[in-house]
Design a protein around this nucleic acid. Structure first.
Lengths: 221, 221
DNA sequence: GGTCACATAAGACCAAAGTCTAATGGGTCA
DNA sequence: TGACCCATTAGACTTTGGTCTTATGTGACC
């Protein structure tokens, strides 16, 4: 590494991670290259919110993905919206390409896996501190963009269903027959069939089995 | 804590975790209470296998769940079978009750979440080193036993399918018609129907939609 | 040589799924 | 008052799904 830490000053870094051991390790790693840097710790999204209010002048936020109290990327989205100028680097044990892509799209300037070595993590942090972005080079965005697009499309399609159609779709997922659905909703089987046809048309599928697989992992509200 | 580390000697501990930072932190935590203890590190299931061959006399294995190269609990099952006398404590970022229960059932003597404080982790490790078991007290085994049972039952049922039936089930999941399946497998539709009937009988469902939902999140090999 | 599991298949039959057309009524919005 | 969306339904029709019975061939295992 031909990079010199003295080239720029770092006054304050916030580390948000619910694993005390990881926070400790990261603090040590950071203070060895930035001796006079103040390190703020947050162990939950709530404490992160409080710390940010006090330390909105920080140079960097190191954010863990799986913090309790936040569903997925909502913490990232929240911080990004409220403090647009605060650089964020995400650190996560989950380094699937989808995750990295999401981090990128939600405005993180960098991403490092927790599986990375201390040197790699430090390099990623320093790169972002210098104003650059830092993502694992192995991952092919185009490739996973498509996967993500299909999920997004499905979500859009489901959103186009009418309330009654959603109900019916939910019951199809339970393996109910049209007849049973009709009885439970107190409507005729003909109506159920009409709904099913409409559902399949909107989802772009040809039968209920395909419909079920398409929304298998989507919550029907 | 009214517990005295000098009460027993600890010569050798193996730490298996793919996060270098966590390994460092844990090593530090351990060496502070067991100064003369040798700490062996493994960063993958492969290196764990090698280290175990050399250090099968270790006093404890601290095992991370999400190591690359092992699907879920296979590493735990492997070690447990090959070295039945080696105490194992699991450490994981995923501390869902199901996970804890699995660890317990696969023979781990303890479980601590990575979200726990260093003191808690150290206490868990020491408890297991003393020959006791250590699991989070909050978790209600009976409650999650049931959830787990249904998943385990499904897995058992899928395991009873013949190779050809597995193929057919996989194609059903793709929403193919019996006719299409017959064409693709170059068999008659009657045969496909026979397979489908057998599949549904073994899975304990009444139609293909229910079958699909039942195995929606199971990989069909 | 006999048993067993598996894959294959035909034919008959009934139930369920899905399409199309046409029609009614309620609600909202301009 | 229309235009429009949504929910509802009937009737006729075709296709698909699923059961049951019966039957053949093959390879493994003892």
């Amino acid at each position: 590494m031909n990079w010199d830490p003295a080239q720029f000053t770092v006054d304050k870094i916030i580390i948000a991670d619910d694993h005390p051991m990881f926070r400790d390790a990261l603090r040590q790693a950071m203070s060895s290259s930035h001796a006079d840097c103040q390190i703020i710790e947050a162990e939950s999204s709530e404490s992160l919110r409080l710390q940010l209010r006090e330390h909105h002048d920080a140079d960097l936020l190191v954010l863990d993905l799986n913090m309790p109290g936040v569903e997925g990327f909502s913490a990232l989205a929240y911080v990004q919206k409220k403090y647009p100028d605060l650089p964020i680097i995400m650190i996560s044990a989950n380094d699937k390409p989808e995750t990295i892509m999401h981090a990128k799209h939600f405005g993180a300037l960098g991403f490092v896996s927790k599986s990375a070595s201390i040197q790699e993590i430090r390099r990623g942090v320093n790169t972002v501190l210098q104003g650059d972005t830092h993502f694992p080079y192995q991952f092919n965005e185009q490739l996973y963009q498509k996967l993500d697009d299909t999920l997004a499309e499905t979500t859009r399609q489901v959103a186009e269903l009418t309330p009654q159609q959603l109900k019916v779709l939910g019951m199809i997922k339970q393996g109910l027959l049209n007849k049973q659905i009709a009885y439970d909703l107190d409507i005729s089987e003909a109506t159920v069939k009409a709904h099913v046809t409409a559902i399949m048309r909107k989802l772009g599928v040809n039968n209920r089995t395909q419909a079920v697989m398409k929304v298998a992992n989507i919550e029907i509200h």
